[in-house]
Nucleic acid binder design. Sequence first.
DNA 1: CGAGTAAGTCTGATTTTAGAACTCACTCCC
DNA 2: GGGAGTGAGTTCTAAAATCAGACTTACTCG
Lengths: 151, 151
Amino acid sequence: MAEPHEVPPGRSGEDGDWAAGLARVVGDRWSILAIRAIFRGIRRFDDLQADLGISRGVLTDRLRRLMDAGVVERVPYQENPVRYDYRLTPKGLELSPMIVALLRWGSKWVGGTQHGPVLVHKQCGTELEQGFWCRTCRTTFGPLGVGARHE
Amino acid sequence: MAEPHEVPPGRSGEDGDWAAGLARVVGDRWSILAIRAIFRGIRRFDDLQADLGISRGVLTDRLRRLMDAGVVERVPYQENPVRYDYRLTPKGLELSPMIVALLRWGSKWVGGTQHGPVLVHKQCGTELEQGFWCRTCRTTFGPLGVGARHE
DNA sequence: CGAGTAAGTCTGATTTTAGAACTCACTCCC
DNA sequence: GGGAGTGAGTTCTAAAATCAGACTTACTCG
């Protein structure tokens, strides 16, 4: 196994706030799972609770945090009493590469041979590939081609 | 904001083990951060501890879990007393699309204007793009082009 | 010998989490 | 109009995870 890219030391310094921000979103067992569920089209509190098998209190808290983080939003679909749909904001939707990467990794490495939905290109049904792309070289490449630069 | 793809209901069913497997890796505040640190080339216990600002006990535990999960491995770099380097296994290295996605998302949405290392194509230094690729259509596409199929 | 280094372990105090039951504000059906 | 049902929470207690920091072990170096 080759070296991953060497990032010039780049002390994590005031990386703390960044990490804290991310922690809101990926820092616990449920948040990503919740995002994934919403991403899959599950939109209501009770459905989320049932699908995830999470306790109601924790779900309430997680959704609130995700809303605070601007990743999820809640839109009323009826008044009297008010009932909500949870959806991803643009910011949340942009997490999809991460979720997709996770899903693909999970289906490759976790949980036996058979598994889960295969992600495909909607237009043609071909299983999608995910990779890095360089617009200068007009080429795709894998993890080992990744480097870093400080700005 | 458009609908994300609708995955045919696809009950999460015995999704539990899958989730449990993933939870080992992304299910807490520290694991991804630790993987990212190792990915960046930080290899030793004390360095990881200092870089992450994590308590030693938790780091011990997280590294052990990641090793159990087969994502990280420990290779002695000296005997007497034995001292270790932590590294990503192939399985761990394949998490990089996920980490990269997260990093990119983080630098776009979290923590102000200025931020962090920019990820680039090592060969030419161009900032990389990450996307989905369809080998049939020979085209790249974004989150909204993603669908799902059950096998 | 004394100081330093690396990789942990141990400890008690704090913080989170989980789970189940309960509340509130309605609607639907006979 | 009374009972059952639904959706979205809140409240409670117990159990688990986290923290910072001191301590341990096994060396090496000057």
